[in-house]
Design a protein around this nucleic acid. Structure first.
Lengths: 171, 171
DNA sequence: AATTTATGTCAGCCATATTGACTTATTCTG
DNA sequence: CAGAATAAGTCAATATGGCTGACATAAATT
């Protein structure tokens, strides 16, 4: 694969060519994000396959573990998927004992979601593997660099949760 | 959605709680990556929909634009998909005049790929929109922070392109 | 009592990816 | 040169994870 222009090989951008500012889009950074995220989720994909799960299961289980007792509606808002899409993977996670549903105390229509011990353990395993990659990536950086990386990602996120049309799906 | 534990709302991690180190996986950073990447690709998705394209088309067109004259095999190696998957979107991009195929000069089995002017223009538009988000995210950072963000992403990427089994698909 | 809300479900469709099996050119090699 | 290897393409079937639309049920609200 001679002379392919992506991150793993020679950097396409000469760091010394700083003079002419109107250099257009930062292709290097765009590619960095693409490859970094791919490898990042790839870690989890491998482990999930051993359970017969996919990324969708990971996301659901993750946010349930991180938000114990979350309502279905709120989970849908975080994931930004439809309840039909959620339903399929959630059912599997419940059937296989990774998530538990309990009726809401004040509102018994709710089916509040909790990770079981088994579910928590899986989330933990997955997070540890992903965190390992993140720690190694941060290892070469000083405090300012690490803070910068975190702040950069934080700033990339839309401030205002893009408004849902008032009667979207949760109608 | 009271008290949901994700990046947009109150940070789950108290920055002052620095004492006990064995704090486990960095959930905050994991979530930051998830939401940041989602919004990042969301920008492109919107524009692509106007052309009847999806993310797969974007990736193909992007790497062709960035690697003019690339061979199909090398594109497959970058994208890490099968030629059948590539075939579908590549055909559309060629049929609709975004990509051009030219026979290799020394090896006429090759169908070297080039973005047409139309294709380049679309890549540019998409990259500008994505770059705008990246620039805004970097705007609040000093030089050290920006360098840190870039280095962090770079370090997240697997050094060694994970070895393909010697006769994987390109058989 | 009527309406709204929270949740779930059926059916069908789309986009993207996979495996496996073959075909057609063309190049390389013994 | 004959045969093997390589570059590319194609057909068919399947999986995953999304989507829309149409309903159903139970519980809460008005």
């Amino acid at each position: 694969m001679a002379d392919i222009n992506f991150s793993r090989s020679a950097p396409p951008v000469d760091p010394a060519a700083k003079a002419a500012e109107p250099s257009g889009p930062d292709f290097q950074l765009i590619e960095l994000l693409f490859f970094a995220y791919r490898d990042f989720v790839g870690d989890a994909d491998q482990m999930l396959a051993r359970y017969g799960f996919g990324r969708a299961h990971h996301r659901v289980l993750y946010f349930v573990e991180r938000n114990p007792g979350i309502r279905v509606t709120d989970l849908l808002d975080i994931l930004r998927i439809t309840k039909q899409s959620l339903g399929r993977v959630l059912k599997q996670l419940v059937d296989e004992g990774f998530i538990l549903q309990t009726p809401g105390e004040s509102d018994r229509r709710q089916r509040l979601l909790h990770a079981t011990r088994k579910g928590s353990r899986l989330v933990q395993e997955l997070a540890e593997r992903q965190s390992q990659r993140l720690e190694q990536a941060a290892a070469g950086l000083d405090a300012a660099g690490r803070a910068g990386a975190r702040a950069f990602l934080q700033n990339m996120i839309d401030r205002d949760a893009p408004p849902r049309a008032p009667s979207d799906d949760v109608a």
